[in-house]
């Protein structure tokens, strides 16, 4: 399946638009990572654990979006956008959405 954040893919034509598909996941960080992050709050620097965690969650959100697109018979998702928001202390929601289309 082709996933892209462009509206038009050069050299390919959209045959049918199938509408919005979305995938989201809410993840919490575990205590060990939080402890390390607390230390990093003194020294500054990258929080590798969080970077990985959010990267994993983003992949999962895209996967869920892809499943949804497959279920309605799409072969591509265009104009994909990501958004991140912290819903509660220690938990973040990763959200991915796009337009499912059939391409020739």
């Amino acid at each position: 399946m082709l996933i892209s954040n462009l509206e038009v893919i050069p050299g390919k034509q959209v045959v049918k638009h199938l509408g919005l598909v979305q995938g989201s996941t809410v993840r919490a960080k575990h205590v060990g990572r939080d402890l390390m992050a607390g230390l990093k709050n003194v020294f500054g620097g990258e929080l590798k654990g969080y970077t990985e965690l959010l990267q994993e969650s983003r992949e999962e959100a895209v996967e869920r979006m892809q499943e949804q697109a497959q279920a309605i018979g799409a072969n591509a998702i265009l104009n994909v956008r990501f958004s991140t928001s912290s819903v509660a202390q220690g938990a973040a929601e990763i959200f991915a959405y796009g337009t499912a289309v059939i391409m020739e």
Binding site: V42, E46, T51
Partner: peptide, 14 residues
């Protein structure tokens, strides 16, 4: 074409 992401989480020091 393929969608790619790059991300980083940084913390500010004390």
């Amino acid at each position: 074409s393929i969608l790619m992401t790059g991300s980083v989480v940084v913390s500010v020091d004390y």
